[in-house]
Design a protein around this nucleic acid. Structure first.
Lengths: 217, 217
DNA sequence: GCCGTAAGCTTACGGCGTAAGATCACATAC
DNA sequence: GTATGTGATCTTACGCCGTAAGCTTACGGC
């Protein structure tokens, strides 16, 4: 008989496959049984390399966190802006990751390191301990919160024509004039405006923060 | 035999019970079987009053949406601020609701009405169609996104002493000086500062938006 | 050859949402 | 009274899920 030797399992292979499934089919479609199947093994065999499903989720979350660059401590607000945009883009590439990040009990070392770097950068930028406390919430909430919000709004259009039909039926111009217009704006120039919404709001926040810092100096 | 007549089921009774379970034990603890049990009926009996679990989730989401007041069209930025704070407080009272709101396929009429009112209010406040497009994203993303972010951070401290122990072990002052300090700030004056974080960031955004409007006039 | 160990597989348990059909309570018609 | 119809409720079952427990297999060192 043909010795069709499968490449053996390993934590890295499992995590890579899990990340692919999550990216392509969504995090809710990621089950141990299905993951085993895509790898050509039984579900229970995965447990030789992964402690539990939570451990697996931690693993793929770490892969996403590795795509983010914490701000340099002495980079000031520009460094914060750069790193916020990078973090947001990582969370856009893997829309399920923000959800995972907000699950309790999944605080990863890389996440802690990011928080620490952001705080250090704020202090280095000249904010007092007191203002840093608030400014940190502002920036972190914007990065993660906006990504969470956005993930829900990019919910699988499936079919452009279906979406259009749904839109005209659910949001007629007569009853929702402004919302109808807003929807048209979204369709007319595609996702490139949506893309910059994160940075648009981020700049509003950073601008106000910079002003706040100037005042307390 | 004692005729211990149960009060019969009804959609309202089911929704009220479901909302209570979600508030007290979290949305993930809400199952049809458990819900039936708390009401004294079999799980399948609920389906006489509720089309599906999704329908039930829509129902309790509607209850939360009913706690929000859309901004008056002619109220300007102050009305937007008031309504944003009210919406955020509703989402804080029911932390699972923001998650539900972001699930695809759960767009509720009340949600559409809120979006429409927010857009109308922005136009009424003097923003151009173009700026309104972005400003809307800014405000809506802050309301929902911040609530989502916050819901994850208030994750069941369970035991204050355990939390403290976890904190000191995971975030020692030596390796995470700034994050350690930040954690202490959280503990020292409790949740009342956290409470205003939403409004702090909201005011930064609205301030910048007002400036933006002034410029384009 | 023997044996320990790790990797993989099988079976099973208790949970989930819910389809299908049986049963029961009760209002109305005769 | 009895018969009939109609809804509410319950029972059973199916196919998912995560994973505990135990079994089989492959292989390296003696």
């Amino acid at each position: 008989m043909a010795t069709t030797k499968r490449k053996p399992l390993s934590r890295d292979r499992i995590l890579a496959a899990a990340l692919a499934v999550a990216d392509e089919q969504g995090i809710e479609a990621l089950s141990m049984r299905k993951l085993g199947q895509t790898l050509g093994f039984e579900a229970m065999s995965l447990y030789n390399h992964v402690a539990s499903k939570d451990d697996l989720l931690d693993g793929i979350l770490d892969l996403v966190l590795a795509e983010m660059d914490p701000p340099a401590p002495d980079g000031g607000l520009p460094a914060i802006r750069r790193s916020a945009v990078a973090a947001h883009e990582a969370l856009r590439r893997h829309p399920w990751a923000a959800q995972l990040l907000m699950l309790p009990g999944h605080v990863r070392p890389a996440r802690l390191a990011y928080m620490e770097a952001l705080l250090a950068c704020l202090r280095g930028a000249g904010f007092s301990a007191d203002v840093t406390y608030h400014a940190y919430h502002v920036v972190d909430a914007h990065i993660v919160g906006f990504s969470l919000w956005q993930a829900s709004h990019s919910a699988a259009p499936a079919n452009v024509e279906d979406m259009r039909e749904w839109f005209e039926r659910m949001i007629p111009a007569e009853t929702f004039p402004n919302l109808h217009e807003h929807g048209l704006q979204h369709m007319h120039d595609g996702p490139h405006r949506e893309l910059s919404a994160f940075e648009f709001a981020l700049d509003l926040l950073l601008e106000s923060l910079a002003k706040l810092r100037a005042k307390t100096r």
